[in-house]
Deep mutational scan, measured.
Amino acid sequence: NNDALSPAIRRLLAEHNLDASAIKGTGVGGRLTREDVEKWLAKA
């Protein structure tokens, strides 16, 4: 759900042209964290 994304995470996803639904969030309530996105980028 994009409503649950912080502005910083939205920007990070946009910079790398990523789809938030492709990344499993580990934050509160399954929210994406910066670490989630960075780990996903490291694997890609």
Rank of each mutant, 00 (worst) to 15 (best):
L12A: 05
T33F: 01
S21W: 09
N1K: 12
E15L: 15
R10I: 13
D3F: 03
W40Y: 15
L32E: 00
S21D: 11
H16I: 03
T33R: 06
P7T: 09
R10S: 05
S6I: 05
A42C: 07
L5H: 06
H16D: 00
V37Y: 03
G30W: 00
L41G: 00
E15G: 08
I9H: 04
P7V: 11
G25K: 03
E35T: 08
G27Q: 02
A14N: 07
H16T: 01
T33P: 00
A22P: 04
R31P: 02
R11H: 11
S6Y: 05
R11I: 07
N17S: 08
L18N: 02
P7W: 04
T33I: 03
A20R: 06
H16L: 08
I23C: 04
K43L: 14
G29A: 09
L32F: 05
E38G: 04
S6T: 14
E38M: 15
A22Q: 15
R34A: 10
L12S: 02
S6Q: 06
L5W: 05
R10Q: 09
T33G: 01
A4I: 14
G30T: 03
L13E: 00
D19W: 06
R10V: 12
A8L: 12
G29V: 03
T26N: 05
L18Y: 05
R34G: 05
A22K: 14
E15W: 15
R11D: 09
H16W: 07
N2L: 14
S6N: 07
N1R: 08
N17M: 07
D36R: 00
K43I: 12
E35H: 08
N2Y: 04
W40C: 02
A42Y: 12
K24M: 12
T33M: 05
A42F: 11
R11V: 06
N17E: 06
G25D: 01
G25F: 02
A44P: 06
V37H: 00
A22D: 13
T33D: 01
W40G: 03
A42V: 08
R10L: 12
K43T: 11
R31D: 04
L18G: 05
K24A: 11
S6R: 05
G29N: 13
V37Q: 00
